[in-house]
């Protein structure tokens, strides 16, 4: 690749031209407050105290719902491609990894749970909490004995779809109860949002671990 470094290829010229255009346009963007005002005005009906969480779970809850769907579909797509390779490729030797994990995983679980809960009033939320939990899960997978049995397939699939299901159920219930699709009754908004966040965090954590594994479980034969 070194020989290419100084060559002015068409791709490079195009990229430079695009960069120039984008810089000119971006520096010239008019100052405008965006949606900070409307969000601040609606916060007293949002059910949660933090504006980003209110946008994610209430005002633009449909985006978050579809985004959970994207995560789940990614796992299904990967599963459709075949079974995974054994992980870890080599079992971890020595006491360091296991000793660290013994302390790290409880901390990660508490931190993740806290992040989910605190999301309603401060920085945090289902994705941040789910990511911490997912990281703990990945560490755990890396240190497991090679042929450790996975949880049953149905349980995996249930955990995977928990977030989307919770969201879809609450959203549809809102539709049937007259609050519109993806609408919450205002009095219940806080509890419903917290419930959805918890379910979503579990699904996200599990999804991230399954994405890391990259393929269907090797042991369970339920498909194909």
């Amino acid at each position: 690749m070194i020989r290419r470094r100084f060559a002015l290829s068409p791709a490079l010229l195009m990229s430079l031209a695009l960069a120039g255009l984008l810089i000119v346009v971006v520096l010239d963007l008019p100052p405008q407050p965006g949606l900070a005002g409307p969000v601040a005005q609606a916060m007293d009906q949002a059910g949660v105290g933090h504006p980003v969480t209110a946008v994610l779970l209430n005002f633009r809850g449909y985006d978050t719902f579809l985004e959970l769907a994207v995560l789940m579909l990614a796992v299904l797509s990967i599963w459709s491609l075949g079974r995974r390779d054994p992980i870890p490729a080599r079992p971890v030797q020595g006491p360091v990894m296991h000793g660290t994990l013994r302390h790290l995983i409880p901390v990660a679980v508490v931190t993740g749970g806290y992040l989910v809960w605190v999301g309603s009033s401060d920085s945090g939320g289902a994705f941040q909490g789910g990511a911490v939990l997912g990281a703990a899960g990945v560490m755990l997978m890396l240190s497991l004995p090679r042929e450790m049995p996975m949880p049953p397939a149905l349980l995996q699939r249930l955990g995977l779809s928990l977030g989307v299901f919770a969201f879809l159920a609450v959203g549809t219930a809102g539709l049937l109860a007259g609050h519109g699709f993806m609408g919450y009754p205002p009095a219940w908004a806080y509890h419903l949002i917290l419930g959805i966040e918890l379910a979503a965090a579990v699904s996200i954590a599990l999804t991230l671990v399954l994405l890391f594994l990259g393929g269907r479980s090797r042991k369970v034969r339920h498909d194909r």
């Binding site: 100052p31 405008q32 407050p33 965006g34 900070a36 005002g37 969000v39």
Partner: peptide, 12 residues
Amino acid sequence: RGEGGIDPVPHA
């Protein structure tokens, strides 16, 4: 960039 504090929507 806004005058009225950080806009939460892009963060979401």
